[in-house]
Design a protein around this nucleic acid. Sequence first.
DNA 1: TGAACACTAAAGTTTTAACTTGACTATTAT
DNA 2: ATAATAGTCAAGTTAAAACTTTAGTGTTCA
Lengths: 103, 103
Amino acid sequence: MIDTAKVFQALGDATRRDMVERLTDAPLSVSKLAEPYAMSLTAVGQHLAILEAAGLITTQKTGRVRTCALAQPGLDTLADWLAARRSPWAQKLDALGDMLDEP
Amino acid sequence: MIDTAKVFQALGDATRRDMVERLTDAPLSVSKLAEPYAMSLTAVGQHLAILEAAGLITTQKTGRVRTCALAQPGLDTLADWLAARRSPWAQKLDALGDMLDEP
DNA sequence: TGAACACTAAAGTTTTAACTTGACTATTAT
DNA sequence: ATAATAGTCAAGTTAAAACTTTAGTGTTCA
């Protein structure tokens, strides 16, 4: 399980949150991911490292292109934290959801 | 609905997240809430203002004591954001949970 | 083989957020 | 009335993130 602090800190930044949102639709290369932002590619790479450490994305390099995709572990950490703070009903349903998600 | 940015930014700080976690159990005064932290009351007050703006807590002053309690709107914002990024199964169950939560 | 491409590493700068200090208000207790 | 409590305001400091620049690696294309 991913550290809660890393997940919330990662999503606390607007650029990183936007990256995760864009990856919800489809995987993207670092360059494509960087396009909308007015910052260097280096800065984008730093953001991606933080997102990856938080288990929110996975990346793999093929040739010279690194492809980034949304990852579950970070989202699961977030879901667990949330469940502990919501109504008993929501908690039970979240637990059921986790059960049904398993392979 | 609360702004997503405010909620994530609020929970991105370890002290604020700890405050929310402690308020999950029971409401607390500003002083009681401040006790475990090695920082001024002023700093605690600043954190509380951010949490309140994010809809994660509500506060009300009675006499000279301000009591802080966990609030739903911020958590709901978080739940909605999460639901959009998790598996279809988890999404359906979250929606069902929201339905059953209603009065 | 050489040039353009897609990134990456190290180190420094800038910007933002957290926290402090000192002074102050309103409420409760003596 | 006085003093202690509980919190607040404004302004400044400090510490942590975000971002840049420069230089470099490995990969693909002409």
